[in-house]
Amino acid sequence: MPEMTYRDALNLALKEEMRHDPSVVVWGEDVALYEGSFKVTRGLLAEFGEERVRDTPISENTIVGVAVGAAMGGLRPVAELMTVNFALLAMDQIINHMAKARSMFGGQTTIPMTVRMPGGGGSQLAAQHSQSLETYFMHCPGLRVAYPATPADAKGLLKTAIRDNNPTIFLEHELLYNSKGEVPEDPEFLVPFGRAAVMREGRDVTLVAYARMSILALQAAADLEKEGISCEVIDLRTLAPLDTETFVASARKTGRAVVVEECWETAGLGGEIAYRIHRGCFDALLAPVQRVAGLDVPMPYSRQLERLCIPRPETIITAVRDVVSGRY
């Protein structure tokens, strides 16, 4: 299996799906001539031409809304928002239109579209460019939300998103674009939605995470192994649907769980996951579920302060030690 970056895996997924289905079209700010601000759409214009790969005005709500209409009209658009932060300008089309059209019209239409958006913090981009808004989307019925952690999942989940007849929010972590991993070459390689990955098996504590947080959880687990604490790492892959069965089964087995989330802690997705674990296996828990989350502050610019705001392997390790030793 060839090794490639998360960025190239996404790029390959786009190319394969555009070759596979002529109704797949791509548009967004600077995706064509400039080849994407993160270069995920590199080579698309050259291979597929201006009809299928289009630069748009800086009009985020319309970027999404045109995709809603095009999807209703029988196409399979993949829209890119330059970053998740700009999705806030498109929330009307995402929440009120993309997520609602099928149900409010009585199931008479499908919206087979994908909105890709890079996000996450850690690059000293300050308050307006460092947000983790995944909870906003998974809160809304009618949407699928995928957020890959590995290059293989980046490819397999994006292909599933494009082929799926439901509207999908596809989040990509900016700090993972250069990460490398083995990626299947098979153009029919798809990663199904709603099935979490057990990235590492363990006995003592379950770490539930997603996207970059899963990578940090794996790093923490490797260090904790050295002190004799065995962690099971569950990567959610999709936040909607949420594979409750897998993380509850894991928590039942280990008796302890720590949720690692990059979003703000208050009303963050970790609260929902903790609730589901408590409800699903309260009898088997040896400790309350803990959370390691983004700090409840607008992201400061200075890296000295920023590092405090995002979970790190050290903060995960501390939380796991606390849970295992009963300090909670």
């Binding site: 079209v25 009809e51 709500n61 319309t62 999404v64 809304g65 045109v66 995709a67 809603v68 209409g69 095009a70 999807a71 209703m72 009209g73 029988g74 196409l75 658009p77 009307d92 089309q93 009120n96 239109h97 059209a101 019209f105």
Partner: peptide, 23 residues
């Protein structure tokens, strides 16, 4: 469709027109 967010139908109409032209 009838759309109840004022102006919400504009981009949807543009998208449908795009789909028609594309096809």
């Amino acid at each position: 469709g009838g759309y109840a967010i004022v102006g919400g139908q504009f981009p949807v109409a543009v998208g449908l027109a795009f789909a028609a032209k594309y096809r």
